[in-house]
Design a protein around this nucleic acid. Sequence first.
DNA 1: AAACTGATCAACCGCAGCAGG
DNA 2: CCCTGCTGCGGTTGATCAGTT
Length: 192
Amino acid sequence: MGRAPCCDKATVKRGPWSPEEDAKLKEFIEIHGTGGNWIALPLKGWFRCSSFPVNSVYAFFAVLNLSGICFSGLKRCGKSCRLRWLNYLRPNIKHGEFSDDEDRMICSLYASIGSRWSVIAAQLPGRTDNDIKNYWNTKLKKKLMGLIDHNAQSKTSASCSFLISPSHYTIAVFTLHSLVIITFIHMQQHQL
DNA sequence: AAACTGATCAACCGCAGCAGG
DNA sequence: CCCTGCTGCGGTTGATCAGTT
């Protein structure tokens, strides 16, 4: 008998988050934190109490409505809330293009520890593991394969700047699908 | 203009590890 | 110890968009 699912798929909302849901989740976490329990988070509710004189005063309750769907309106699985917060709503999240330095860092870390995206993300402030994973799978891997092909053919370093610092050796070991590609690129400034 | 294809990325799934009872 | 439940993680999926035919 397998473990029971963390939430009832028939009652929780799935798919893309709406701006309203984002706002609710963000507001809630900023005020109350996650409480260390993401599974329970959507089950908690909060009321803006019109009886309070100050607009920003909220009263917090843990409630369940009769159907078991959260009162707060965030009819989302706790895991979904956690993912949304960590990958999108959390403060200081960086979106957009990765810099050459970040490329280099990702390649270097991937070479030494493999696909431990959370560890890699910890070294890149503002980047999430999901972001890095997506970036690796969709862009960087191809960029690197192109680099390997290009380097094998022309032995020039012009396109290698994102990966290799001048005057340094870089050993990159990449596991791509079932194929292990070991690339040893030896460069010294002014030599290539 | 429509159909097709590939790229991108947010979100989901299922598992491992861990902590608490 | 064993069991249960939660968190965090990596792999995968699928919706959407852009480019091409």
